[in-house]
Every structure is written in structure tokens, then in C-alpha cells.
Design a protein around this nucleic acid. Structure first.
Lengths: 399, 399
DNA sequence: CAAATTAGTCAAGACAATTGACTTAAAGAA
DNA sequence: TTCTTTAAGTCAATTGTCTTGACTAATTTG
């Protein structure tokens, strides 16, 4: 009969889509700017005062915003600012790293309420999954105990782990990869194990989300986070949204070959894995973070030697990021201890010339972002909250 | 009194935004799938039959779609497909290249109605602008003569030229740059000179737009066009939209340094400029395109030597693009003559390993796109048409 | 104390999608 | 043939959401 080829089309939208979009726009404005009056919101979103009033009433009813003390500014009736209610929503963030797993609980404005971590046994998902699930369960339990209505305002679980995802070839020999984990249906397992709405992204992307929410990328539409963790990656904020690529592997800059001939990648010289190897320390050591931090702070020559070597590749990475993404700024972030990160930043100067190298820039080419072992988990937790409220294209489409 | 810091927020939307979005979704579906019945459209866009009917009636009244012959498919009333009317809208596309400028007129479905080109005198915008404006004027005049109502359905002028834009440092010595043009307020000049709605993008981006509209990227949401022209660039289709970066310079992969130490870029070995230099031919020669094409087709050893050298860097470029963008496919396109492009493609095999190198891919890692000197102008022309009708986030925001 | 200015509300109206019943047109079954 | 099923498409009423314009409220300025 007729060919039943699938028809490709974007989804249309309707009244509810409009309304959802406007709600999200308002929440996003409040997150970005702090408390705002209805009149301010109306101007900023280009909606009418009345529309904003209606939506605010609804949001207040939903327990997502509350009024603050009214402020006088010159002539006219004083305005009543409304701010987000931290307890309006909660999410759990989960990081699965090479040797450790971390889980946190955050609220609507990004405050971290609970942190827990556990060593991840060797043996991949088989032995690791119970540990991870238990950790999540512990965080959830404690959250439930601490905040009465948290459970029903828990919007989801955001998980992050090193990429790349969906590769079929086995890179078991590559110390920077987590092959068994990457082939494991983590999302489904977590979803089944917790009953929560689960999202999965790579650690660099999660870090970028965290930077956008509360860090150096706050309010920026084009920013790239150069993530230095056990491996190296880039988290991409492009056009105001996190970009993940066709299969969630965008930004895996650590795997970029440094030249057309060689087999060396950025990760070989600049990842924390390479640092541990260089120093001959055991990455499983429980106090490794503070150990590195102390040695870096004391300008340990072994550390400085690694920093010099790593800076060469990181400098090139920044050049590359600037050249291909044209961001407003590049943010160095990740699990590197603060003292180490500061030294890396310094060693990367001067940056290589690039298109981003112009006078009268508003933002520096390279900024130091969060150097917090919990940053990835924070970003992971931000994902479900963002999904629930951010103004994004997909959000206005019909469900 | 109070601090009048600017408030950052996304714009809200209203009924007209909804309606505009749905119109655009429908037009886009028709462009992507060809003629579709109202029922098909309703299913594809997830709008109701009635809504689609209303919009179709409006679009038909606007002269953008017409009904085709009804088709029977099994039981039920036969459907009446509607297709885009080519004469529904027109746009002018303009390419400004190093030594030549091209202008075309296209219709709503992308047919090229008129092509004109002119040599661009040395001396930059001062001597070049009159030539460009005259060329545009010529195309416009001929369009007006050929199609009576074209003038009032002319939605804009899309211009493309090599990037990068907005650099303040002077690279007059760099033969791959067009410094004076890049610092020239082309957009304003064209706008003032023609009275049209003008957009400006780089040539690689324009080429990507063309590939998305009628080429290998048709219907893809994540595709990168590796553009080999006088310089080298990448046109980025990310998340279904063209991505340009913070300042329109995203994808300038030709300027990426090949290693952290050196000063060599992809453009040095793989651009047509490097080919002309390698061959010792004058890039101003009027028949240069067919000349290269013939020599390539005859497997001229000088050409083949260049191909080998260029392929090394292009292979690396593909690896890099796959690693940082994670696209569904990479498309080799640009102003290279067909015979040369085919040889480049062949010489690039085998590709370097990357995350994209997995079995059961749906699309090849690298495809040959348009090898048409007019592709850039076509893509440039698609921009105003797309702007007028595409479903994009910005389109649903309040004007 | 009146005028100006700004925040915010009220009630009616406008716009655009939805709903459900209906009409039309074809294929297949009895 | 005729009845049933299926699918396309229309009609008219309804619903959801934003806009409009007039209004009230609260404050500063002259």
C-alpha cells in the first residue's frame, strides 16, 4: 500500500506548553538573579504584570517561592521581592569515579544538605552497584529524616561518571577508561533500584552544570569547563544549554590525539591518573586528596614537575576549546585539590594565542572554577532540578 | 537608591509565540519530509487535526503550501497531501570569498534560480563593496523580472564569508585571513545598501546549513561539516541547530594548532590556499576551479602529493571533531572540485580511531557532501528562509 | 498636601488549541 | 450488493492562558 516511513518532525506546542515555559522562565530568572519583584519579573521576561502575578501565585501555592520583605526604591509603591524556597525541591546527586563514589542531597537553590562517600571496590558494576545503591539509599534516608516533606519533593537522581559511553570495543587495558561500568546499564539499574527519575551524564558535563548553577559560568550562555579529574574532559555549555552530542560523548577532549601521527592524548600527561602514576601513589588511598593538596601547597618538586608537563597539554586544550567552541570563557575545574589547581592555572600562563585572544574582553580567557571533590555530584544533582524547571526548548514541546 | 543592575532572564511566550512555533514546525516538517497530509502532520507534530487544519488553511492563504493530488492508502478516506510552494518565499545568498564573490537567488524549497559571480578586486572592502552590492542588485533585478511577486516575498539576504570575526589584532600577513573584510561592518553596509534583512555567518557554517537543508545532513540533529575552502573550517549542526559560538567563530578548526609546541595549523597543509601555493597557480585565475578539477581527475602527481599531505591533517581534524562534538556523522564539503574531493576522501581512509569508531553505526563516520562552488551561497540563502520559518527556540520568544 | 511614580489587582476580552460529534470516502466482508 | 470498518477531515462549542485597560495602594517629590 503506502510506504510507512517514519515522519520526522518537531513537536508542536499548546497552551500548557506556553504556561510551562513561562513558569520555567520565571524560576530560572529567580535562580539567576535572586529574589525579584513581580514587576521586575514582568519586565525581564516580557510578560505582563498580570501573567506574572498569576504564575507567582501558583508557584507560591506550590511552595517554590515565597515573598521577602518589601523594599522601597524611590517613588512608587514599594515592591515585594519573591525568592526561591530552598525546600521547594530536592535532588540526589551521584558521582561514580574510578575508585570512589559520592552521593549528595541538594535543595532547589543548590545547597548541599548531605554528603556521603564510599570506596568503590575493584570489580566493576558487579561488586560496585550494591555499594552505590546503598550510598544513595543512605543519603535518601537521612534526607527523609531531616526534612519531613523532602521525599515527595524529590525530583530525581542525577548520576555522573567518566565517559565515553556506548563504546563497544573493549579498552580494558586503558587505565583512563572504566570499561565495565561504561557498558553497564547503570541508568536502568539505578532507576529500578531507587524508583527515582534518573539521568546520567559524564563527569565533565556535570561539573559544567555545577559551574553554571553556582560557579564561574553562572548566567553565561557559552562556557566550556575543562575538567581535570581522574581523566580529562570538557563540559559544554553551548547556547545556554548543556550540550552532550549525539551519544553523550561530546567534550571528551582527553581522548583527542595530540597530533596526527602520535598516539598520545591529553589524558596521558594531564589527568590526575597521570599525576598518581608520576608520584607513584595509590589512587585508592583514602586521604589522597588532602595528601596531594598538602604536597602541592608545599611546592613538592615532583608535583611541580608534573604541573609543568601537564600545563603544556592543558594550555593546548584551552587553545583548542577556544578555537572550536568560541566560548565566552574557559573554566578550569574538576577534582584537583585547590593548591594543585592554582599551580596548574599559573603554569598554564601565558595561554597560547587564539581567536579568543582579543583586547577588551569582558571575561578572562581562563578562570579557575570549583576545586571541590563534590562539584561533580553537585552538578549531577542539578540536572534533575534543571530538568524540572529550566526554560529549554524541549520543555515547551508537548509531553 | 536601589541598584539598577540589569536583570538576566529568558523571554516568556504567549499565544502568538505558540502559534508561530506551530506554523514553523509544520513548515519544517514539510521541508524535511516532502508533501504530507493534514492527518500525517497532526500525528508527526502531536497537534490535533483541527489545529493542523487551521494552520494549513492559513499557510495556504499565505501562498506557502498547496494541495497535491489525493492519495489512497487502504481503507479510509484518501488523504490530500500538502507541499511547500517553491514561490512562497525567496532569498538571496551571497558568498564573499578571498578572490571571488557569488550571489544567488533561491526559493522556499532551496531551488537556485539565479547565479552570478564576480571577481573581487584586491583592496578589501573599499573597492570590493561596490562590486558586491552591484552583484546583489543584479541578482535581485533579474529575480524581479523573472518572478513577478518575488520582491515582496523576498525574506532577506544571507551573506557568508571566511571567519573569524571580531578580531582586533591585525593578521594582514596571514594569507588565510581576510583582515580588512573581517573588520569591515559588512552587515550594516549590506543592510543599508539593499534595505533587506541581512544575516552574516562564516562560510563553513553556511555550507553546513546547505548540507542540512538539501544535503548529507538532511534531517540530522548532530552533524559537523568539515569545510575545505580557501581556508578550513567546521560548520556545526548541534542539537538540530546551527551553532556559532559566542562571537560567531565556533568551528574555526583551521586555526587550531596541531600540537602544543608548534605554530602549524590545519590550514597550512589542507586548505585550497595551500594547494594553490603548492601548485604555484594564481588563485585569481578565472578558470581555477575547472583547472584543478581536470588536473585532479587526471591524477596529476603534484595534486596527489598535496592530497596525501592534506589528508594527514584532515584525518586528524575528523578525529578531533568526532572527539569533541560527538556528531552522528562528519561531512566533507566545501569549494574543492569534485575530483579533488573524491581523492581527498579516499586518501583520508582509514580514519583515525576515535569514540565514533564503533560497529553498527547507522551513518558512515565520514561522508562526502556538496562539492559545489555554490554551496556556500546556497547555505547563506537558506539562513534568512530558515530564520523566517524554522522552529527554533528564539522564534517562540516574544518579539 | 497634591502630583507623580511605581507595584500590583480586577474583570473582561482575545487568541489559539482542544474536544467530541459529525461528514466523507475508501476498502473489505458478508 | 450492501453493511461494516477504517481513516481523513470539518464543525461548533469549550477550555486554557495571556492581554488589556481601568483600578487601587503605597511611596517620594515639590
Amino acid at each position: 500500500m503506502n510506504d510507512k516511513r517514519p515522519i520526522r518532525a518537531t513537536s508542536g506546542t499548546n497552551h500548557e506548553g506556553t504556561s510551562a515555559h513561562n513558569r520555567r522562565v520565571i524560576i530560572d530568572a529567580l535562580r539567576l538573579n535572586g529574589a525579584l519583584s513581580r514587576a521586575d519579573l514582568a519586565r525581564a521576561t516580557r510578560l505582563t504584570k498580570q501573567t506574572v502575578s498569576n504564575i507567582m501565585e501558583e508557584l507560591e501555592g506550590d511552595g517554590l517561592v515565597t515573598s521577602r520583605e518589601s523594599v522601597r526604591h524611590g517613588r512608587g509603591q514599594p515592591s515585594t521581592p519573591y525568592g526561591l524556597v530552598p525546600e521547594g525541591a530536592f535532588a540526589i546527586g551521584l558521582q561514580i569515579d574510578r575508585h570512589i563514589t559520592r552521593a549528595i542531597a541538594v535543595d532547589l537553590v543548590g545547597n548541599v544538605l548531605i554528603r556521603k562517600e564510599a570506596n568503590l571496590p575493584a570489580g566493576g558494576p558487579t561488586t560496585g552497584t550494591p555499594v552505590v545503591l546503598q550510598l544513595v539509599q543512605d543519603v535518601r534516608m537521612e534526607l527523609k529524616q531531616r526534612v519531613a516533606q523532602a521525599e515527595k519533593r524529590l525530583v530525581g537522581l542525577g548520576a555522573a561518571m567518566p565517559g565515553p559511553f556506548g563504546l563497544e570495543r573493549d579498552d580494558a587495558d586503558n587505565p583512563w577508561m572504566m570499561g565495565p561500568w561504561q557498558r553497564f546499564p547503570l541508568l536502568e539499574t539505578l532507576s529500578a533500584g531507587t524508583g527515582l527519575n534518573v539521568t546520567l551524564q559524564n563527569d565533565a558535563a556535570a561539573c559544567a552544570t555545577a559551574e553554571r548553577m553556582v560557579g564561574a559560568a553562572h548566567g553565561l550562555d557559552h562556557a566550556v569547563c575543562l575538567y581535570v579529574g581522574y581523566g580529562i574532559g570538557a563540559g559544554l555549555i553551548l547556547g545556554g544549554e548543556l550540550y552532550s552530542g549525539a551519544r553523550g560523548n561530546a567534550g571528551e577532549i582527553g581522548m583527542a590525539l595530540l597530533s596526527s601521527g602520535g598516539r598520545r592524548t591529553v589524558e596521558h600527561n594531564a589527568s590526575l591518573a597521570s599525576l598518581y602514576e608520576h608520584l607513584g601513589v595509590d589512587p585508592m588511598a583514602p586521604d589522597i586528596y588532602s595528601l596531594i593538596d598538602k604536597r602541592a601547597a608545599a611546592d613538592d618538586p615532583d608535583i611541580l614537575a608534573w604541573v609543568e608537563k601537564a600545563a603544556v597539554d592543558l594550555r593546548w586544550s584551552v587553545h583548542l576549546i577556544e578555537t572550536v567552541f568560541d566560548p565566552q570563557t574557559v573554566i578550569l575545574c574538576g577534582g584537583a585539590p585547590a593548591a594543585l589547581a592554582v599551580r596548574l592555572m599559573a603554569a598554564m600562563q601565558p595561554l597560547l594565542p587564539s581567536n579568543a585572544d582579543r583586547p577588551n574582553r569582558l571575561l578572562p580567557r581562563l578562570q579557575l572554577g570549583m576545586t571541590d571533590p563534590w562539584a561533580v555530584a553537585r552538578g549531577a544533582a542539578a540536572e534533575p532540578i534543571g530538568h524540572a524547571f529550566d526554560p529549554r526548548f524541549s520543555a515547551i514541546l508537548k509531553s
